[in-house]
């Protein structure tokens, strides 16, 4: 059995390319009625405010971006000047990027190895957290058992446990009790999954519990069990929420340094790119002009993921359910 949300409500003004759109969310692009709504909503003031926010939020990052192409002396020290001067005296160099990607690290000169490590760490963790958190969130939202709400509140409260306090007990457990070899991906996968779960469950619970009860009741009447409801209804309907969690989970793990420092063993076999880039400025920071370039080398993948997952932020997934 399937519940297919009807497409008529699913108007998407952002053009989702037809080829990418899966069947369930095919948008009727050009309902003239909707166009009128849109013109009213996006007033001139709103556009102006949006532009201001976008500019204010981007200028600092843009400054870093410009800096990353400036020679060392222009970036730091008394001979440096503001990054905006780059446009008048026009001194740009790729050297910083070359140094970041090619300079010899203490473990390996090969940055691509760390890149692969980062991906090998992030991808499984994101999958683990998404699946486990959505299972738990579903049961906390729609299961029937004693202490359900108390349990959920407890899980939510765990978000406050500072990571730093959990590292020593966890490392002891991994190396002494479970005998997971140090410097393996396994330790990092498990640790990151643990730390990602409370927020994941909390985010998804909000979304899953707002799925109209009628949808689930209808499925139950049709004889569907929890597993069927979970995989066939809950997950497809939660795609936007899953996509946002995926983006952030990916990001947090990608940018993590703390967990990596403790569990990766620091070798090029396992260590993620953050660990390599953290030492790029040298033992005493005398090469800190490389940091801007390093920051942009490591931001590429998260941005690609962000663009890639955006097409799952679609409108009207619940429309059909409401009518039912």
């Amino acid at each position: 059995m399937t519940v297919t949300p009807t497409p008529d409500g699913a108007t998407q003004k952002t053009r989702v390319r037809k080829s990418q759109t899966n069947k369930e969310v095919t948008g009727d692009d050009a309902a003239p009625m909707m166009r009128r709504v849109k013109t009213k909503l996006t007033s001139r003031w709103a556009t102006a405010a949006a532009v201001i926010i976008a500019v204010v939020w981007t200028v600092p990052t843009f400054g870093l971006f410009v800096s990353s192409f400036r020679p060392a002396a222009k970036q730091v020290g008394p001979r440096s000047d503001g990054w905006w001067n780059a446009f008048t005296d026009w001194q740009f160099t790729f050297k910083n990027y070359v140094d970041v990607t090619a300079s010899a690290g203490s473990q390996s000169a090969n940055l691509s190895q760390y890149f692969v490590n980062s991906i090998a760490i992030v991808v499984p963790v994101t999958v683990f957290v998404l699946v486990l958190a959505s299972m738990a969130a579903y049961i906390f939202a729609w299961g029937k058992f004693k202490g359900r709400d108390a349990g959920f509140i407890f899980v939510f409260t765990l978000q406050i446990v500072p990571l730093q306090m959990a590292l020593i007990p966890l490392l002891t457990l991994f190396t002494q009790v479970l005998q997971i070899p140090p410097g393996s991906y396994a330790q990092l996968w498990i640790a990151h999954t643990m730390f990602g779960l409370p927020l994941g469950i909390f985010l998804l619970h909000n979304f899953i519990s707002e799925i109209p009860g009628e949808v689930i009741e209808a499925a139950k009447v049709d004889g569907a069990g929890h597993t069927t409801i979970f995989w066939r209804i809950i997950l497809p309907l939660s795609v936007p929420a899953l996509a946002s969690l995926a983006i952030f989970q990916f990001l947090w793990v990608w940018n993590d340094l703390l967990v990596a420092l403790v569990f990766s063993g620091g070798t090029a076999d396992v260590a993620p790119i953050t660990q390599r880039l953290a030492e790029i400025s040298g033992t005493r920071g005398n090469k800190d002009y490389l940091n801007p370039a390093a920051a942009f080398v490591s931001i590429i993948v998260p941005l690609l993921v962000f663009f890639g997952l955006q097409r799952y932020f679609v409108r009207g997934l619940l429309a059909g359910g409401l009518k039912g």
Binding site: L170, L171, T175
Partner: peptide
């Protein structure tokens, strides 16, 4: 010799020693 250098050594060495690693 398996070498690892980290600018966070000062905080990490305590963590690792305490955890028996």
């Amino acid at each position: 010799i398996k070498y690892e250098g980290s600018k966070e050594f000062e905080t990490q060495i305590g963590v690792r020693a305490k955890a028996g690693n």
